[in-house]
């Protein structure tokens, strides 16, 4: 029996830098009420969104991913030539062939990069961060650029008032690399494929959700995943400085925070509410929220951050990391 040599990696990883991109076009609730039967108060009450950003017709997912990725590299002080793998968590590439990651890598100047897209819907960024960290620890990659990027306006029926008020466009990125200290905790992930029919693309064209069923699942099943991620990192809920749930709906975010506080998370734990001005950007929402919160001074370097994503599949993933 022939034994094969194994690659060896490093013991620990961290996030070296982050960046994000949002399209310029701001769409307010009043703008939407011109197009469909809805209004500002109704939207704020149901989902907590005040405004969101929509990409233009000729502004593509790949364009947004490139800019977010470049910003994350600049933040990390890492040259494109120092990155060898690009992962693009996304569920809204207009066509599955080709993938986004290879062209994003090329446009950023990362040559012959390992490159793949990862579809775990709104859980995509946490899946991608977990995979990136593990690739480096296994020795399969040196530095990985993870870019959650979505153009959800492509898959939302413009006059569907249940979904058009929620979803938006943008990208958020993180550079992951080796570290002396362990600054990314183990990913806790899973799926609930029995609930596949609660979020899907109707006629392969437009997104559809069973609102109540998804809300019930997200408000009851995701806090336990987050707590598992905390335990996996060897921490207690009271150690968490910042909670960043996927920005699906402000009421889901608040319900998750409430359940974590009931289990010992601190009252002064900062809870991401980036959805207010960004809408739901699926796999982009967690890194985008982190970037915006850091810019606003709500997250500082070395803060202990708990991220948890959840969405179509249904799929979910979470981990603890140290803010760069």
């Amino acid at each position: 029996m022939t034994t094969l040599r194994q690659s060896t990696g490093v013991a620990a990883t961290r996030i070296l830098g982050i960046g994000s991109f949002q399209p310029e076009r701001v769409v307010t609730n009043d703008d939407l009420s011109q197009l469909m039967d809805t209004n500002d108060q109704w939207i704020r009450d149901r989902v907590g969104i005040i405004e969101r950003r929509f990409a233009d017709k000729d502004e593509f997912l790949v364009d947004m991913a490139v800019t977010a990725g470049e910003r994350a590299l600049a933040d990390a002080g890492v040259e494109p030539s120092d990155v060898d793998t690009v992962i693009v968590p996304t569920c809204t590439m207009p066509s599955p062939i080709p993938n986004a990651a290879a062209q994003v890598a090329d446009r950023i100047g990362i040559k012959a990069s390992g490159a793949f897209d990862l579809n775990a819907a709104c859980a995509g960024f946490c899946y991608g961060l977990g995979v990136a960290s593990d690739l480096i620890k296994a020795g399969s990659a040196g530095r990985v650029l993870v870019i959650g990027a979505e153009k959800l306006t492509d898959v939302v029926e413009p006059v569907d008032r249940a979904n058009a008020i929620i979803f938006a466009d943008g990208a958020g990125a993180a550079v992951v690399g080796p570290s002396d200290e362990a600054e990314i905790g183990p990913v806790v992930w899973g799926s609930a494929g029995d609930l596949v029919d609660t979020i899907y693309m109707r006629d392969h064209r437009y997104i559809y959700q069973e609102g109540q069923a998804v809300f019930r699942w997200a408000t009851t099943k995701i806090a336990p995943v987050a707590l598992e991620a905390v335990a996996a990192a060897g921490l207690e809920p009271s150690d968490i400085d910042v909670l960043i749930p996927h920005q699906a709906n402000l009421r889901i975010v608040e319900a998750i925070a409430k359940r974590l506080r009931a289990k010992g998370a601190r009252d002064d734990m900062v809870v991401a509410d980036d959805i207010k001005y960004s809408g739901n950007t699926s796999s982009a929402s967690i890194p985008m929220a982190l970037d915006h919160m850091r810019a606003a001074g709500r997250v500082s370097q070395a803060d202990v951050v708990l991220a948890v994503g959840f969405g179509a599949g249904l799929s979910y993933a979470g981990q603890v990391f140290i803010a760069p």
Partner: peptide, 11 residues
Amino acid sequence: IDSLSMVEIAV
């Protein structure tokens, strides 16, 4: 009470 609050009440 809206439909999402009804879910929270039910839970």
